[in-house]
Design a protein around this nucleic acid. Structure first.
Lengths: 351, 351
DNA sequence: TTGAAAGCGCTAACAG
DNA sequence: CTGTTAGCGCTTTCAA
């Protein structure tokens, strides 16, 4: 591999001049620019980014910490991060934590050791000390869907509360008053926020909270399935079920069908996330759309903007990205309960 | 940030000794190991991986080139790559090409500029020259699901032909003889190979090829939907449809239902990939499982093994990973066509 | 405008 | 066993 020296020799100039040509600095005469450029091409010279990084202590690399690449939410975030980075000459170094506190700490350290210019954390791992230390050390960090009170870390979160409120308004507008909520794990922030939106929606409509129709479970198909089994067996079963995410909603869906009931005639159902699943004709689930791609993009822009500014300005940025209700065919007006069952994919009464 | 020098000063030794302690080399006396270790901890010293990389020309970084992070196949591959890398002290630098030839060339160059130790290419972008150059330059490369004849690049591919053959054997064993194939784009290697397996399966069963029931389309829902519309309108319509991937199969499924036909009673259907979709009760698709996670893991092991060996050994490795048929409820014995339609989720006749 | 020289932080040779 | 020295490839003073 040729180096600046080789190029310099071939062009009959000094390494410094070669460097100046490459970085368009220090006013080099057109003649030399020309010959250096030719030498670079002839030799197929490529700058060693490592050496440059060592010298200028800037690597144009962004570290990305996510929980799990197999989860579509995170891979969408990763896609957003990569898209913005690649457009601005940055590269992404990524690692996954499996939501393990120690893995998170370890990987953040690895990223620092590799001198990444900044770190984006989209992991729900509970290791707040890691983040606090990062910020305390003056490291540029942006948090996705994770917020630490009292810590000066920029963050971008989706408006889970607002999205859930939209769902509630919609269900209430369809005449539902007995609405169940199927939540994920109690320590999942998004799930908690969606639950919060649910509760606010109830309050807004003047509906009393019934803790018996708020179920907690694993944020997966099985969690929804089990919760629905319970809810459907209730003497006074709900007319609508709001699940904390799409996978759970699909679990609910199957349980409802197994009980011999129909969606949306007997039970209205809403999910959250607008996964690709929800749009399938056989699922056709009303849900809330949140673009995780966008979340990743926004976070990355925040970080890169920060990197290009003087380190002085320490303004704390907290961006909330809105969600939007996507109405499909899984909800009906509450009076539609009297409809003939069995049609399955009837158009929704709403809209 | 403290450096080796700072540590050396504090421990009262030379930088070289510090380095030796860190890298467990050159037999340092226990006493000095002890004091150096303490100095490191007291200072919170962390080696600068950039500087080390510059010196030893080894970065413990793997470059990963994929088509698109939003596609579950690729994010699964990425997960596999990351898993193995992180387990062996490597980090992953990743970029996406969108299957664009020039983007691929550019990104591969970026990875080289960053001195990654090796590159894994899981992109279907048609830029073979890029790969050829990489290999010609002696760069360690492993290709996933992409094979270049005449190029000395290691590769790991899934056994698409074998998987498709299993599907055909299964359908034939159910008595089907009029089996349609819904292919993806003509230049998609996996799709071509699956088609190849289909053709071989026909030959094996002594069934004549009917080009009218081999349809090409976009490897997505719509592609399957359109193809099925055509196939179902045929005077002598097929009794079974084999789609090149799950998304297409779901498109086929919807078209079949819209035509007032039932799966599997009227039409048997098989997909490929075993996406999470296929296992949903409402889909319940018989398909072929290929673990892309495993593909990523195998490729990474190949690469890392290569990196730890002497550069002399230039054995070309080409690994084929088997697929397996996953029987669910979308196929029935051909005589079952006479069954009463409308049951929808009857158990498959096979097995 | 251009070049010489120093140094980013680290490790490999070699000398002691 | 330990320290001195040199240099990986680059950029950046500073002097010419």
């Amino acid at each position: 591999m040729p180096t600046v020296k080789d190029v310099a020799r071939r062009a009959g100039v000094s390494p410094a001049t070669v460097s100046n040509v490459i970085n368009r600095k220090g006013n080099v005469s057109p003649a030399l620019v020309e010959s250096v450029t030719r030498a670079i091409e002839e030799l197929g010279y490529r700058p060693n980014v490592l050496a440059r990084g060592l010298r200028v202590s800037r690597t144009y690399t962004v570290g990305l910490v996510i929980s799990d690449m197999l989860n579509p939410y995170f891979s969408e975030i990763a896609a957003g991060v990569e898209r913005v980075c690649s457009g601005r000459g940055y590269t992404v170094l990524f690692c996954t934590t499996g939501d393990d506190k120690y893995a998170e700490a370890k990987h953040v350290q690895v990223l620092r050791d590799r001198q990444v210019d900044g770190i984006i954390v989209a992991s729900t791992g509970a290791g707040n000390e890691v983040i606090e230390k990062l910020v305390a050390d003056g490291y540029p960090v942006v948090l996705i869907n994770r917020r630490l009170d009292g810590v000066e870390a920029d963050s971008v979160v989706s408006d889970n509360v607002g999205g859930a409120l939209q769902v509630m308004d919609y269900l209430v507008s369809l005449g539902h008053r007995r609405i169940a909520f199927v939540a994920g794990a109690r320590d999942s922030l998004p799930s908690r926020e969606r639950l919060d939106g649910y509760l606010r929606g109830l309050a807004k409509a003047g509906i009393m909270v019934d803790n018996d129709i708020i179920r907690y479970g694993y944020l997966k198909y099985s969690g929804g399935y089990e919760a629905a089994k319970y809810l459907l067996a209730l003497p006074d079963r709900p007319t609508a079920i709001f699940a904390a995410n799409d996978m759970m909603a699909i679990g609910v869906m199957d349980a409802v069908l197994e009980a011999g009931l129909t969606i949306p005639q007997d039970i209205s159902l809403v999910g959250f996330d607008d996964t690709m699943l929800s749009s399938l004709k056989r699922i056709n689930l009303t849900t809330v759309r949140q673009s995780y791609l966008e979340l990743g993009e926004i976070a990355t822009k925040m970080l890169l903007d920060k990197l290009s500014k003087r380190p002085g300005r320490r303004s704390l940025k907290r961006q909330v990205v809105p969600c939007s209700l996507v109405v499909r065919g899984s909800c009906a007006h509450v009076t539609a309960k009297t409809n003939v069952p069995g049609v399955g994919s009837a158009a929704p009464a709403g809209r």
